[in-house]
């Protein structure tokens, strides 16, 4: 098995022309080996199970095309941690801003108008 270099980042791999892959995957491809797809995860958007290449940190669900960040605990154990982008994921899931939606008073106060215009402030 190829040695994993801990500091090797996805961006570096991108330069090599292998976007989104880990060094392990790149090494396997360069060696002419085939990627094994043993590990399964379940899409948290459409709930279909799909296989993922070992070590891949960003995957796309073949059913609904949602992109997910994976967390690998070891070579055979992975879980979906989060969408590639929370903002895009939520926009896709919702389409509306719940905060704006929740300010439902018929005659909003000036402060509520401010929240409606500018969102929730810290």
């Amino acid at each position: 098995m190829a040695e994993i270099v801990p500091d090797f980042r996805r961006d570096d791999v991108w330069i090599l022309g292998f976007p989104g892959m880990t060094f392990l995957e790149v090494a396997l491809i360069l060696k002419g080996g085939e990627m094994e797809e043993k590990v399964e995860v379940r899409c948290r958007s459409c709930h279909h199970r799909f296989k993922v290449p070992s070590g891949r940190e960003l995957v796309e669900c073949p059913t609904c095309s949602q992109k997910w960040r994976l967390k690998w605990f070891d070579e055979t154990t992975a879980t979906i941690l989060a969408p590639e982008s929370w903002v895009e994921f939520q926009a896709k899931m919702k389409g509306v801003n719940p905060v704006r939606n929740s300010i439902g008073a018929a005659n909003p106060t000036a402060e509520q108008r401010d929240i409606i215009s500018n969102g929730v402030k810290k």
Binding site: R69, A82, W86, P98, V99, N101, V120
Partner: peptide
């Protein structure tokens, strides 16, 4: 927002365990 909704946008990319 006190169970009024089942998803919240506040926090965006930052509101993540990682």
């Amino acid at each position: 927002l006190n169970y009024q909704y089942n998803m919240l946008e506040s926090g965006g990319e930052e509101f993540d365990p990682e």
